[in-house]
């Protein structure tokens, strides 16, 4: 059933173009229209909700129900908020491709404009966390060390010391956090996607989330340093033991074979 959406990629693409064109026209119209700014914004908002509903009906309704009330195949979306939609669709988790222990991330199917429209629609179903602004999740200037401590208290138990991910029960897992955008990390903490618990602002204020993101960027970003050399995955002693056996003892056995080998003899004539 969920594969339906995947198969509809091509027809969807056509709709996307249409919608973009419509949105552009609408946007232009709104820009040039003589009405007040606030009114224009409101109009744009309701337009986005309308477009979002169309996208929703095509791509999401089969599992989450026509009004977002949820079905046996997907949870209710009432009250999950725009942030949840932005995370789920933005990381490619939704629409899901196949049932399984956990829905994995994959390249996003919708572009950001469409995601915004979907988010606007779902947000209109019931109040929930809004999509955070750049200012909210931007880790610049945050306290990396404090983030490390918060990370070890709240996150490391599932995601590993430096965010390499880890196993949960029955095939579920906490995903690898390398390369995940700060916005998505923020949203995940805010909304608690799938089996991850949420860490709402009431118990983990915005600044602490920023600290955690800053810590992750410091230890698991593209430019993170590993002074001692190869990280060997960052998984700890299991990976180190395997490396030691294969490359440590392996190399030494190879050397020992050379040391003990017979030297080439002169050819018998």
């Amino acid at each position: 059933m969920k594969k339906l959406s995947a198969r509809r990629r091509h027809p969807l693409a056509a709709i996307v173009v249409l919608i973009l064109a419509l949105a552009a026209t609408g946007g232009l119209y709104a820009a040039f229209a003589p009405a007040g700014e606030a009114q224009a914004e409101e109009t744009a908002q309701s337009l986005a909700i309308d477009e979002g509903k169309k996208l929703y009906t095509v791509g999401c309704a089969s599992c989450h129900g026509t009004g977002g009330q949820g079905t046996s195949d997907g949870p209710s979306l009432v009250g999950v908020g725009a942030a949840a939609v932005d995370f789920q669709v933005g990381t490619g988790r939704m629409p899901a491709q196949q049932p399984g222990a956990q829905v994995p991330d994959k390249p996003a199917l919708y572009d950001q404009a469409q995601i915004d429209q979907l988010a606007a629609y779902v947000a209109s179903l019931g109040a929930g966390p809004a999509v955070p602004t750049t200012e909210q999740y931007d880790p610049a200037g945050a306290d990396v060390a404090r983030g490390g401590q918060l990370y070890r208290t709240n996150c490391a138990q599932c995601h590993n010391f430096t965010g390499e991910g880890g196993a949960l029960t029955h095939g579920k897992y906490a995903p690898d956090l390398s390369g995940v955008a700060p916005k998505h990390i923020y949203q995940a903490m805010l909304t608690g996607p799938q089996n991850m618990p949420s860490f709402p602002d009431t118990t983990m204020p915005e600044q602490e989330k920023k600290d955690i993101i800053a810590y992750l960027q410091a230890v698991n970003g593209e430019d993170s340093v590993s002074p001692g050399g190869l990280k060997i995955g960052g998984f700890g002693p299991v990976a180190e033991g395997l490396f030691g056996w294969v490359f440590g003892l392996g190399a030494l056995v190879a050397v020992a074979i050379w040391v003990a080998a017979r030297t080439a003899k002169a050819k018998k004539s």
Binding site: S226, P227, G228, G229
Partner: peptide, 10 residues
């Protein structure tokens, strides 16, 4: 392929 490592250690 070692990554960003300490020049001294290496």
């Amino acid at each position: 392929p070692l990554g960003h490592i300490s020049a001294l250690n290496f």
